[in-house]
Amino acid sequence: MAIEPRGRVQIDPNECKGCGLCIDACPPRCLVFEAELSPYGVHPARYVGSGCTGCGICFYVCPEPGAITVYRVSPPPKVISATEAGRAATL
């Protein structure tokens, strides 16, 4: 089984203007230009799906306020509340 990446990045293809700064800045080089043009006529950035460390550099070099959202693996919760425990049990 593959190791779960530490992070995950989500790029909104409608907000991305395809400047490529995030692709150039990404340390693990896990962002690429989308082959297809977006409705706005640019090749938006796309996460290849693995390798993200959740470092957030792509977020800070990106000029668009909401184009990039970065996720990171949550640290294991120390105390689980009753509702969360209940929800986890049903999943």
């Binding site: 907000e15 395809g18 706005y40 640019v42 000029p63 668009e64 306020p65 909401g66 990171r72 949550s74």
Partner: peptide, 30 residues
């Protein structure tokens, strides 16, 4: 996964500008 970086709440969710472009800024790429 938890969100560590996302659009700041100090930005409007939707920008009151040209109708088709309210989800992105008017700035050039880069």
């Amino acid at each position: 996964y938890e969100v560590v970086h996302s659009k700041s709440p100090v930005f409007y969710p939707v920008y009151e500008r040209k109708a088709d472009l309210q989800h992105q800024t008017h700035y050039c790429p880069g």
